[in-house]
């Protein structure tokens, strides 16, 4: 072909040209803004909405010495981890079912997983108010059945926040595990069975270990997304249930203190980045790419 004359399919020049636009976009819209935020962490806060470029370590000093921030950082990691683990426990079985089923229209099951994404995330979060609230469906039903005298306090609690996060993140976990299961060579399971394994043993010895990369990728993805969320705690939690993202929001939008807000943002970015780096070190990032593409 005339147009590809001189090019080979695996030509590194072609590869660079193909990724160049994306690299440029990443540089302009991801790395550069993060760098600007990094610089902002050294700016001086004057008053709400006003800062000067006089460089200072005051923001970092405040973060490092104030236990208020450390407490929220630990809490954010804890809520993120709890959400990810519950997602793993709840998500593995549906993924396994979709993989193992002999139902002819498997695509329908996968479609059902994606359907929630058709509705705005904020609206999905708001819907919990009508389920968990005092006038919500659970309380109204329990009251009508006479099982309780007073409505249960479910909304505006940490439980409600985790529930909202699970609702949002579960499909990510299921898809990741499913993709991992799909890549297992089924003859391995047959081999295990033919060598005398019970089906439970075959699952424990073959299927589960081989699906661990997907489970790990799902855990990381759910953890990072949960720990970085701020809409869910804002809508379903009380002030005490705020996560680190809410602290950042309030510092930037409420106190109009951009230098401190930038400092907190960089902190969260670095902390979540460390978890992702640790994961890459032990599991490899390719699994997440597979899961998202799956």
């Amino acid at each position: 072909m005339g147009m590809t004359k001189g090019w080979k399919l695996y030509d590194p020049r072609l590869a660079w040209m193909l990724v160049a636009p994306v690299l440029l976009l990443l540089l302009l819209f991801l790395l550069l803004p993060i760098a600007v935020m990094g610089v902002y962490t050294f700016f001086t806060f004057v008053t709400a909405g006003v800062e000067t470029s006089a460089l200072t370590f005051a923001n970092w000093k405040e973060f490092l010495t104030d236990s208020y921030y450390h407490g929220f950082l630990l809490k954010t990691v804890r809520v993120g981890a709890m959400t990810a683990i519950i997602c793993a426990v709840l998500g593995y079985f549906p993924a396994y079912f979709i993989w193992a089923t002999t139902f002819r229209h498997k695509w329908l099951l996968l479609l059902l997983l994606i359907v929630p994404f058709w509705i705005s995330f904020t609206i999905r979060t708001f819907s919990w108010i009508h389920i968990l609230g005092e006038q919500g469906i659970i309380n109204v039903t329990l009251l009508k059945l006479g099982l309780i005298d007073q409505p249960l306090q479910m909304l505006y609690t940490e439980g409600a926040v985790i529930m909202g996060l699970l609702h949002f993140l579960l499909p990510y976990m299921i898809l990741n595990v499913y993709v991992s299961l799909e890549s297992i060579d089924r003859t391995l399971i047959s081999a295990a069975r033919s060598m005398g394994c019970t089906s439970a043993q075959a699952f424990r010895e073959v299927t589960l270990p081989l699906s661990l990369p997907g489970l790990g990728a799902g855990l990381l993805l759910c953890f990072v997304l949960a720990a970085g969320s701020y809409v869910t705690p804002q809508l379903l939690g009380s002030g005490r249930d705020a996560l680190f993202g809410n602290l950042i929001y309030d510092t930037i939008m409420g106190q109009l203190n951009w230098p401190m807000g930038a400092t907190l943002s960089i902190v969260l970015f670095v902390v979540l980045g460390c978890f992702a780096a640790a994961y890459t070190r032990y599991m490899g990032m390719s699994q997440i790419v597979k899961g998202l593409g799956g």
């Binding site: 709400a48 005490r240 602290l247 510092t251």
Partner: peptide
Amino acid sequence: NKQWDRISKG
């Protein structure tokens, strides 16, 4: 504002 932000978060 700063103090209120903290109190509001417990």
